[in-house]
């Protein structure tokens, strides 16, 4: 039964792409959770949708739309940040406005292109099972780039995330790091959302990372656990979806969520 899975090229592609997506989402997601930037990450994930819709309307490569719009969104968020004042409330209002506007424009582009609505739903909810070998190659290249970039900034980023003031005093360029990190998040969600859809990247980004942070506070071990969880739930989700014919978005999020609830309950008991 399980070996049947690999009899089809599209399932092999789905497993390779899913694994790469899970690894980069977990690594980047661990820092997203650490830095409490879940809202910004979620918004960057969602605004891939207008990018993809624009690409579909104007006949550009869809991958281009997925990468360019979240990249611009990340820059807009960095530009919109206050000058270090305590403006948390209004900063999230900016992020929320960018998100709603981007989704509205995405919907407009879909209606203008007269694409059928299931095309919009593929952009939003992804299609794990229609992944081409070209997509796998692109995803691998982007994934390697993201991991290299992350390993370059991992140490100072960790320092700046845990204690921004001390890091700043020690000469760590925390503002530049924050901008670089948001761009990495944008590239990650762009790469992953071509497979999971714009709405479900977030699950792969945040749930394994948050589960890992409940288990350990140490960065190296935490990132490793997040990667293991993300890959495991992705494989289990793919296999279940293949066997039971239920959407991949449901199976992957459910496995990840169940694991998180279990770990949360156990860590409460252990206290």
């Amino acid at each position: 039964m399980i070996l049947d899975l690999f009899a089809y090229q599209f399932m092999v592609n789905a497993f390779i792409a899913g694994t790469i997506a899970a690894v980069i989402a977990a690594v980047v997601g661990w820092y997203v959770v650490l830095r409490r930037e879940t809202f910004a990450a979620h918004t960057l994930a969602l605004i891939g949708f207008p990018g993809a819709a624009a690409a579909a309307l104007f006949g550009w490569p869809v991958a281009l739309g997925y990468f360019v719009v979240p990249g611009l969104g990340a820059l807009a968020m960095v530009a919109g940040r206050g000058r270090g004042e305590a403006r948390a409330g209004v900063e999230t209002a900016t992020v929320g406005t960018i998100q709603a506007l981007a989704l509205a424009i995405g919907y407009l582009l879909v209606t203008l292109s007269h694409a059928n609505l299931s095309a919009a739903q593929a952009m939003l909810f992804g299609s794990f099972l229609g992944i081409t070998s070209t997509q796998v190659v692109v995803l691998t290249a982007v994934g390697v780039g993201i991991l290299v970039a992350m390993s370059c900034i991992a140490r100072p980023l960790f320092f700046a995330s845990v204690d921004a003031d001390v890091a700043e005093a020690r000469g760590v360029p925390s503002r530049a790091l924050a901008a670089a990190f948001l761009l990495i998040v944008a590239a990650t969600v762009a790469a992953v959302s071509q497979i999971t859809g714009a709405l479900l990247v977030f699950a792969l980004l945040v749930i394994p990372a948050a589960t890992a942070q409940r288990l350990t506070a140490r960065p190296g071990r935490g990132v490793a656990i997040a990667v293991v969880i993300a890959v495991a739930v992705t494989w289990a989700g793919l296999a279940t979806s293949y066997v039971a014919d239920v959407p991949i978005g449901f199976t992957v999020t459910s496995y990840a969520f169940a694991l998180f609830v279990l770990v949360r309950a156990l860590s409460r008991l252990a206290r």
Binding site: H42, F202, A203, A210, P247, G249, F250, T251, T253, F257
Partner: peptide, 12 residues
Amino acid sequence: GIVFSWVLGLGV
């Protein structure tokens, strides 16, 4: 985020 992303999965 964790709760709503699972709820969304259910929605799918």
